[in-house]
Amino acid sequence: MSSADLPLFRFGIIADPQYAAIEPQVEMGRYYANSLAKVAAAIETFNGEELDFVMTLGDIIDRDFKSFDDILPVYEKLRHEALFLLGNHDFAVAPEDLEKVVERVGMPAPYYSFRRHRFRFIVLDGNEVSTFAPPESHPFRALAEQRLAALLAVGASNAQTWNASLSDEQFAWLAHEIEQAKAADEKVIVMNHFPVHPPCEHDMWDRERIVALLSSQDNVIAYLNGHNHVGNYGKVAGCHFVNFKGVVDTESENTFAIVDVYSDRLEIRGFGREESRTLSY
């Protein structure tokens, strides 16, 4: 077997456990309490593989700060590094707990990057300018109201209160990280809770500028997200956009993935309801 037939490394993906100790919303297909067992089952599979890390793409909980006390210990059984980014439901907590969420899940910062094997992973805070995540008197709340109103005025399908956007500062940071990666001859994979493509009602409010940036940089190969629980896939120029399905949906069937990274492609191995895909670059 040649080295081209072996992955450089692999990592795991979980999206939208949305755990809470509450009754299911059967009509919506949301089984919040069942996510503990599903995440545990995913971790059992992950522990049977050699992975560099496992990323959860946000909405770790559905609501209530104390929900973290139930689901985070499940990740302690993972023998690999557990990494997180945050979704809109992770901020469905009391106002006094909003600024504690990042630290509670052990993230180094609301957005951050890390490197593995000449790949740079850029982890976004899609909630930064929103009507729910900033502290109640923060100027980003007012900015969020302005951005949402502007989208509502033109009838945009993603003009929803459960969506959000990047600050101009974070967007500039993203562009700078991509430039730094290019200078270091690193390929880039961006991760966020919210989708940006193909267009749908769950997208970031500022999806256009994000898609334009990522698709114009030839070292950016993929954007991975959750939020839209049914999943989705698209491609713009050389960038693949993969929306992973939500764990919380369905009573017992699971959904998660292992991504095998090769020198010329990503192989997504889907488990349960998640689809398998080959993404060439």
Rank of each mutant, 00 (worst) to 15 (best):
D70E: 12
H89K: 02
H80D: 02
F84R: 00
P110Q: 00
E96I: 09
D97V: 05
D69N: 09
F119N: 11
P108R: 12
L85T: 13
R115K: 14
D70W: 00
R115S: 15
V74Q: 06
K100L: 15
D62A: 14
E96T: 13
G106N: 08
I122S: 07
E99C: 11
F65A: 07
V123Y: 06
G87R: 07
S113K: 09
V74N: 05
R116W: 08
R116D: 09
F119C: 12
M107I: 08
A94C: 05
L124K: 02
D125I: 12
L86T: 11
Y112D: 02
N127F: 06
E99N: 13
F91S: 11
L78V: 00
A94M: 12
L98V: 04
S67W: 01
D64V: 09
A94Q: 10
L72G: 09
N88C: 05
A109M: 06
V123R: 07
G106C: 10
G126K: 05
V123S: 11
L83A: 12
I122D: 04
F114E: 04
D64I: 09
V102G: 04
E81V: 10
V123H: 06
R79C: 14
A109G: 10
G87M: 04
L98Y: 05
P108Q: 03
D59M: 00
R79M: 13
R63A: 14
L83Y: 10
G126Y: 04
F68L: 12
F68Q: 09
A92N: 15
P73M: 09
L86C: 07
L98P: 02
N127L: 07
P73K: 11
L72R: 03
H80N: 02
H89V: 05
L124A: 08
I122M: 01
E96R: 13
R79G: 13
Y75N: 04
V74C: 00
G106F: 09
Y75R: 10
F91V: 09
E103K: 11
H80L: 11
F114H: 11
F68R: 08
P73F: 09
R120K: 08
L83K: 15
L124C: 09
L86R: 02
R115T: 15
D69E: 11
D125W: 08
V93S: 00
M107G: 00
E99L: 15
P110G: 05
P73A: 10
A109Y: 04
H80E: 01
D90A: 11
V105Q: 01
R116Q: 14
R115N: 14
L72E: 09
F121L: 03
I71W: 06
F114M: 07
A92V: 14
F68A: 08
P110I: 03
H89S: 07
E99A: 14
F114I: 04
I61W: 04
V102C: 06
R120P: 06
D125T: 04
F114W: 11
